[in-house]
Amino acid sequence: MENKLTYSEFQEHLLQAVRQELKTQGSYQCELTHNQKNNVESAGLIIRQEDHVIAPVFYLEKAYQSFLAGMPLQQISRELVEAYQEQVLPEVDLPDLTDYEKIKDRLRVRLVNRENNQSYYKQGPYKLHPMGAEVLYIDLENQGTERMSIQVKTIMAERWGKPEAELFGTALENTQDHEKVSFCSMNEALQELLAEEPMVAPLEESPMYVLSNETRKFGATVLLYPEVAKQIRDKIGKDYYILPSSIHECIILPKEKGMLSVKELRDMVWEINQSQVLPEEVLGNEVYEFRDTVAKVKKCSKEERER
């Protein structure tokens, strides 16, 4: 039966169905892709009109679940083509990626997961960090409200002929200039989220803080900025733990007597990552700390976690 296709077989059958659907509608290219993103590899279908520079990727996990639930392959194909035709593709200012002088101002750095993610971050230059891996990106500006970016691959960096230290230094400076730090109490963050909700009960005071950037996109990266970790310590007046909420933000928890143990905090981080954070947005399952006497971010030791 058709609905007994494996995921791999489904992808091939859907590709042929979409090609057939587009056959009478113009000149299109259609192909399968497997994109390695933070922590996960996703199968997708690319549809490109021949005179367009960019093309959307339609990821297929949900489509396959619909197929297994009984939706006919032809209906899935038709809906996918309709979705492609309804969207407005942005006009992207695509630079010459081989010319370092043209792209150096677009370089950015991100902090991503490294625990189960080597095939992703090792596609290009990277630096290991106590909380993950630092990865280089090129920011692609466009004329709409959305922003696009691509990871710097090894072959790109080799063509530029620049030392990796220079690339990461430039990327960090650019990122600091374009992604300002956002640091607020947990109560302030929740009040911002609930601002539009009517009749919200007063929030209990929370000892925690939220660290991110102003766009809330890859906000954990601000921990790479020089002096940020020390500035937080100066602001709250205490050493603190760092809980990696996601690649977009971290929770700052001042150290207090009678608080949860590091092991309990680590269990909490793991549980939240499993139940509330998308796999591609998980930063890590460990707990980190900043102590004024050490003056740097470090992972809590095994002895501390177990105690």
Rank of each mutant, 00 (worst) to 15 (best):
E166S: 10
E173V: 13
E166K: 10
T170F: 08
Q151T: 04
Q176I: 02
P130V: 00
E179C: 09
W160H: 03
L140M: 07
A165T: 13
K153D: 12
Q123F: 01
E141W: 00
I155Y: 15
E173M: 04
G144F: 04
L172P: 01
G124S: 07
A165V: 00
A157H: 03
S149V: 01
A157L: 01
I155E: 15
E158N: 00
G169M: 01
R147E: 13
E166A: 08
K153F: 10
E164W: 06
Q143I: 10
H178K: 15
G132T: 05
G144C: 06
R147Y: 12
I155G: 11
A133F: 06
P130E: 07
H129V: 06
Y137A: 06
E179M: 12
E173R: 05
T154F: 07
Y137G: 09
F168I: 01
L128V: 12
L136V: 02
Y126D: 01
I138D: 05
G132L: 07
I150K: 00
Q143W: 08
T170P: 09
T154G: 07
R159A: 15
K162E: 15
E164R: 11
N174T: 08
K162R: 15
Q143A: 11
P163T: 01
Q176E: 02
K162T: 09
T154I: 10
Q176K: 11
A157N: 06
A165M: 03
P163D: 13
L128M: 15
M156G: 05
A133V: 06
P163H: 03
L136A: 05
G124H: 06
G144V: 01
S149R: 08
M156D: 13
V135P: 01
T170A: 12
R147F: 06
Q123C: 09
Q123M: 10
V152E: 02
E134Q: 13
I150H: 11
G124V: 05
A165I: 01
Q151G: 13
N142G: 09
A133K: 04
T145K: 11
I150T: 15
T154C: 07
T145M: 14
P163F: 00
E173H: 05
L172V: 05
R159P: 09
V152R: 04
M148L: 15
M156I: 09
E164Q: 12
I150M: 15
K153P: 05
E173L: 09
S149I: 02
W160C: 03
E166F: 13
N174P: 02
E146N: 14
S149Q: 12
V152A: 07
G161M: 00
P130M: 05
G144L: 07
M131A: 06
